[in-house]
């Protein structure tokens, strides 16, 4: 039985955190009096925020970044989830695939940026490649862990109660039993993908929130940099909360 907090109740901690950050920020500005191109006071950034919203530019850049992350994230899910299910159930497939994964996994998606630029230029496919790398491994590992964590008797019960084929067993037992873990993996990988796309846009892009930040730095507009950073943070939190909600709705762990 979950306690109902309502939207305001859910937002309260974030409002508190935002207020805390703004107060500290204003204190730093008041006490150290930095040049406005280094650290502008909160009200100037609010003004910059308003301008970017009014001109629609913020939405364009945020939309571009989100579209890149979502398409790459979806693509990696299409490959990582079935592969993870297969690895979790088959010793042979796991032995073949796992060493390759373990060798590639420690290489940060950011380390792939130079190669991505060489291969794909600064177009969309390079960005999607980077985010794919960033989202693939968390989704895969969570899926494998989810499948391996299935209580063996659930598989036995599935077999006894009529799942005759491996396919039926996958569809009716393995997938639903591993779903909570898979959804957690997707939520984590959205976070890593969101971080990766900003980095990729910082280095080579003409649009997106990462580009907005890099551009602000080049034209010495710290307010634009900060607006971009705030948008990244807010969107990241919003998507995480949304995925959490969807996860609770979709899976049995949140059912009670």
């Amino acid at each position: 039985m979950r306690e109902e907090r309502g939207l305001f109740g859910h937002l309260l901690p974030y409002l508190y955190a935002a207020t805390f950050i703004v107060v500290v920020w204003q204190l730093v500005v008041t006490l150290t009096k930095p040049h406005v191109s280094l650290l502008p006071p909160p009200y100037l950034v609010a003004q910059g925020f308003y301008e970017l919203v009014a001109s629609g530019q913020l939405f364009v850049h945020a939309g571009v970044s989100l579209a890149r992350v979502l398409s790459a994230w979806f693509l990696s899910m299409l490959i990582a989830v079935p592969l993870g299910l297969a690895m979790g159930r088959s010793r042979l497939i796991e032995r073949l695939v796992d060493p390759v994964i373990e060798l590639l996994r420690p290489i940060s998606p950011l380390a792939w940026i130079p190669l991505a630029i060489l291969w794909f230029g600064i177009g969309e496919s390079g960005k999607i490649f980077i985010v794919f790398i960033g989202t693939f491994f968390p989704t895969l590992l969570a899926t494998v862990a989810g499948v391996k964590g299935i209580e063996p008797h659930l598989i036995h019960a599935g077999q006894v109660f009529g799942c005759k084929s491996q396919f039926a067993l996958f569809r009716k037992i393995v997938l639903p039993a591993a779903l909570p873990s898979i959804i957690t993996g997707l939520r984590i990988s959205f976070g890593t993908g969101w971080a990766a796309i900003i980095a990729a846009e910082l280095v080579a892009a003409r649009s997106g929130l990462g580009y907005l930040i890099a551009n602000g730095m080049e034209i010495l507009r710290a307010d634009q940099v900060l607006v971009g950073m705030i948008a990244i943070g807010v969107l990241g939190v919003a998507f995480d909360a949304g995925l959490r909600y969807v996860g609770r709705r979709l899976t049995w762990e949140g059912a009670a």
Binding site: L154, H156, I173, A177
Partner: peptide, 8 residues
């Protein structure tokens, strides 16, 4: 240990 399907 029952082995019921918790998603149903």
């Amino acid at each position: 240990n029952y082995a019921l399907f918790p998603w149903l």
